[in-house]
């Protein structure tokens, strides 16, 4: 019985870590711009698709990863420069629609640039399952956990120990004040998009050996990532990770003990309940309403 429970947990952790990586991207952009970027899932898709097709074309994996990270970053920068920046002072809803438009555009571009088939990458450290107390875990899942952890540490260091990171954080707290002390708000916004696109690409690369990827893979990842980020509390990187893990584990336990047909619904019910009692998510800052 314990082995089964452990297996459910592993299953949930694997999915959860994937959702968490997607959620982190939302958190970074939200932090510096208060924008929810619904094209975040597409960054992940671009990372996975670009790497998979380049590897299939014969490029060595590390080079393919580096190139697709670069490509994804360029897409992120372009999105900020040409779509978000000109509309910076618009309503929240307006910007949401822009990012939804961007996600549709990127999906359309991906299906033309690549194709509509599913692509995969070989697992980084083989496909021999690791046995733990009667349950099994794939080595690639460990890669996903490891990368998520490393990303969290790197982000913490970046935001708390580097000048530029601190400036980005400052902008999120008070845009005007940051501007007054000479922080280039535009530069910060640009950097946040580049960073989250980069992160998305990394996520896409480590996740593809498990889930495969195709031009529409970003829809699901975007949706789950958004759920993770909101559940954890917007703008809180650690919160997004916890949120992602909770969603993943809830789904796995629900399909193990309740009903696999309703596992997604159960995850959403949990999110709704959390929001009823904690309207700013698990770790979100309490917002004060300004008149």
């Amino acid at each position: 019985m314990f082995a089964a429970f452990l297996q459910y947990l592993f299953s949930g952790l694997t999915s959860g870590a994937i959702y968490a990586l997607a959620g982190l991207g939302f958190a970074i952009i939200y932090n510096s711009s208060h924008v929810i970027n619904f094209a975040q899932g597409e960054f992940i898709m671009i990372g996975g698709m670009a790497t998979a097709t380049m590897v299939a074309a014969g490029l060595p994996l590390p080079l393919a990863i580096a190139l697709s990270m670069l490509a994804s970053m360029m897409v992120g920068v372009a999105l900020e420069k040409f779509a978000i920046e000109p509309a910076r002072n618009s309503d929240v809803v307006t910007i949401i629609i822009i990012t939804i438009g961007a996600s549709i555009f990127l999906r359309g571009a991906a299906q033309i640039l690549w194709d509509k088939e599913f692509h995969s990458l070989p697992a980084f450290s083989g496909e021999t399952p690791i046995g733990v107390f009667g349950a099994t875990l794939m080595p690639q899942s460990l890669w996903v956990f490891g990368v998520s952890g490393a990303v969290i540490v790197a982000l913490w260091w970046f935001f708390n120990r580097t000048m530029f990171g601190k400036a980005m954080l400052g902008t999120s707290h008070n845009r005007l004040a940051a501007q007054l002390v000479g922080v280039g708000v535009k530069k910060v916004l640009l950097a946040s998009f580049a960073l989250s696109a980069l992160l998305g690409a990394v996520g896409g690369v480590v996740v593809t050996p498990i889930t495969f990827t195709n031009y529409e893979a970003g829809i699901m990842l975007g949706l789950k990532g958004f759920s993770a980020a909101v559940l954890g509390g917007l703008g809180n990187g650690g919160g997004a990770i916890v949120g992602g893990l909770i969603v993943g584990i809830a789904e796995a336990l629900a399909s193990g003990y309740l009903s696999s047909a309703y596992k997604d619904a159960i995850a959403f019910i949990i999110i709704l309940f959390v929001l009823f009692f904690m309207p700013n998510g698990l770790f979100g800052k309490r917002g004060t309403d300004r008149v």
Binding site: A83, P86, A87, S90, D91, T94, I95, I97, I98, I100, G101, A102, S103, I104, F105, L106, R107, G108, A109, Q111, I112
Partner: peptide, 21 residues
């Protein structure tokens, strides 16, 4: 046909950027 999604996305973005209201 295949350019449908790209054009639709571009129209959505363009409208909201240039006519934000």
């Amino acid at each position: 046909e295949q350019y449908e999604a790209m054009i639709l996305g571009a129209i959505m973005m363009g409208t909201m950027i240039f006519l934000p209201k």
